[in-house]
Amino acid sequence: DLDRLVAERRRSTTWTRAGDAPEATTVEFSFEGVLAKEPVLRDACDIDRVFPRAPFVPADHGDLAERCETILGLQTAGLKTRLAHTGTKAAVIGLSGGLDSTLALLVTARAFDALGLPRTGITAVSMPGFGTTHRTKSNAESLARDLGVSFREVSIHAAVEQHFKDIEHDPAVQDVTYENSQARERTQILMDLANQTGGFVIGTGDLSELALGWATYNGDHMSMYAVNASVPKTLVRHLVRYAADVFGGRIAEVLLDILDTPVSPELLPPTGDGEIAQKTEDLVGPYELHDYFLYYLLRFGFEPGKIYRMALKSFEGVYDAKTVHTWLRTFYRRFFAQQFKRSCLPDGPKVGSVTLSPRGDWRMPSDASSRLWLAQIDALNPVD
């Protein structure tokens, strides 16, 4: 895989150019004219190698458990360092009953334990709004109680309704204003509670959401330390499942139910039977596909056409060509359009080889054009 070799040599500062080492030999070669002589090269879509569907997740279960412990340790070490450096003995987390905030709370509890601080210094805040369901609200409270952290419930209904009146927004119009007003109200509550307690807000958003821009600017996008910023959604699930195995008992039951809950920002009213109506993967696509695209784009710099062919092979029998093509285009469109949110991210630990931190591995102007990439995707034939 020449693209991969080039990417690895570009990343590795220990690679020596042939001209700098007398023992190295340069061998020139070319594929020009080869096809006319004999069918050595096959069609680009005819590949045997199958790339892992979940490149962020080890395939071996034993390795997975070890990797999960390592990642949790790195997240914990990063937060522990920040707490110690600032002399902070309190933290505030918006606990929704979803995967990301659950992982953030687990990491924060470990950090407080490592510092010898009481877990009561952690305030988990449930902020029910127009889309909050009984299931997520109950799981959030149960998890907080079982972990021994402080728990508060602050409804955002009245504040957001007043805000709608102030800006003259009709609450019957459930558009982006309707949704983002709730996210920003929650962030205001968390920031002010952090001031009250002398602590700071722990961010919960993950790497996959940052790639897609699936966060409200200056809403859940903002915090004082983002512990999940370099953990993709597919890996978040395994970290929470690993934690369930470690804890066992009542905490494991709650964690497993959180794992079974559809991923949702819960900003739109529930269905008539009280179930989640707004499911993230129905709107932006399956996270397993987006994490696949993200990994091979950032880790090796593969072009969309190559990633598309790889995905067809990796997800054969799971997603058809049209589905892969549709979400690949969505991924690239959103990835370019949402860079402005990544340009002003809060600090967070790097726990793997892929990160989108503007202070780390990723440099990208917010107005970078996606035209060339989208043109390549549009030229693909999803029927093939």
Rank of each mutant, 00 (worst) to 15 (best):
V125Y: 02
L72V: 11
T26M: 13
G352A: 14
Q376F: 04
G62F: 03
K37H: 12
S12A: 15
A18T: 13
E32C: 07
L105A: 08
S142T: 09
I167A: 02
F56K: 13
A226Y: 00
P55W: 12
R135H: 15
S101P: 04
G33M: 05
A183M: 04
R342G: 02
D60I: 15
P304V: 08
K306M: 12
R4W: 03
G19M: 09
R17M: 12
P349Q: 02
T216V: 05
L256W: 00
L99A: 14
S101Y: 07
I167F: 02
W214Q: 13
L99G: 15
Q339C: 07
R17Q: 11
K80C: 10
A59C: 05
V254Y: 01
G317P: 08
Q196N: 13
T204D: 03
A243N: 11
R371L: 12
Q174L: 07
P265A: 02
T234S: 10
G305Q: 04
T132K: 00
V351G: 10
R10S: 14
L380W: 06
T70P: 04
V324Q: 06
N228P: 01
F51Y: 11
A252E: 12
G62K: 12
P39E: 09
R342I: 02
R145L: 10
G305Y: 04
A243V: 04
D3T: 11
S150R: 02
S138C: 01
E209G: 04
L255D: 09
L212K: 04
T261H: 06
G62P: 08
T102V: 02
Q162S: 14
S142W: 03
F302L: 15
S230P: 01
E66D: 11
T123C: 10
L117P: 07
E66P: 02
L374C: 05
R309E: 10
P349I: 02
V354A: 06
A84V: 01
V227M: 04
P269C: 09
G33C: 02
L190H: 14
V40N: 12
N139L: 14
T323A: 07
R299E: 08
L297Q: 12
E69A: 15
S366Y: 03
S208E: 07
Q339A: 15
P52W: 11
P55V: 10
D291P: 09
L380H: 06
V34Q: 09
S314L: 09
E179R: 15
R17S: 15
V34C: 13
R119C: 06
G352V: 02
D257Q: 09
G78M: 00
R9I: 13
L147W: 00
G317W: 06
R10I: 13
S150D: 10
G129H: 00
F112W: 00
P286L: 06
T355K: 12
S155Q: 00
A183Q: 00
D192T: 08
T355E: 15
I258R: 00
V383D: 15
E316N: 13
P346A: 03
T25C: 11
